[in-house]
């Protein structure tokens, strides 16, 4: 993780150049206007050009001052074990919401999402359950009863 912190600008630069190359190539499939004038590909290609040049500049900057960039803006370090796993759990819970919604209904599905996030944050089971139940109930009443929004 520390390696990623110290090389994050270099990694970002690489990703940007890759994104720019992919964007440039994909935009080539868009049609052109009559008489060869640029069509729907013009703006995506300009963006690709900007991303590619920015990536190169960022890469050069990070190679020149790798230590300085790592010292000035290092993001907050994670506490506790498996930070990526906690994140994946949170993402998974939300991604599954539409399926749970279809299977269980709105309030139980939202309860599961809130409960999952609270448990991933190591809230005690009873407090997590109460919070999730309260949140799901309040949000449901707010949207369906007070605002007449179908959920």
């Amino acid at each position: 993780m520390n390696w990623m912190h110290t090389h994050r600008d270099f990694l970002s630069a690489g990703l940007l150049v890759l994104l720019a190359a992919g964007l440039w190539m994909y935009s080539g499939s868009f049609p052109q206007l009559e008489a060869g004038y640029p069509g729907p590909a013009l703006f995506p290609r300009l963006i690709a050009l900007g991303l590619g040049l920015s990536g190169l500049l960022l890469g050069i900057q990070s190679l020149r001052s790798r230590q300085a960039s790592a010292a000035t803006a290092e993001p907050a370090a994670p506490a506790g074990p498996w930070p990526w796993l906690r994140m994946a759990g949170g993402i998974g819970g939300v991604v599954l919401f539409p399926y749970l919604h279809e299977w269980l209904g709105f309030v139980p599905a939202l309860f599961v999402v809130c409960l999952a996030v609270a448990l991933l944050m190591r809230v005690r089971l009873w407090a997590a359950g109460l919070t999730a139940l309260g949140a799901a109930a309040v949000i449901y009443v707010l949207f369906t009863q007070l605002l007449s929004v179908p959920l």
């Binding site: 949170g90 819970g93 939300v94 919401f97 939202l110 999402v113 809130c114 409960l115 996030v117 609270a118 944050m121 190591r122 809230v123 407090a127 997590a128 919070t131 999730a132 949140a135 799901a136 949000i139 949207f143 959920l151």
Partner: peptide, 15 residues
């Protein structure tokens, strides 16, 4: 506790 609020924020984001 922010971790309690966080689960409510997650719920609001989804809804």
């Amino acid at each position: 506790p922010f971790r309690i609020l966080l689960s409510i924020i997650a719920g609001l984001c989804v809804v």
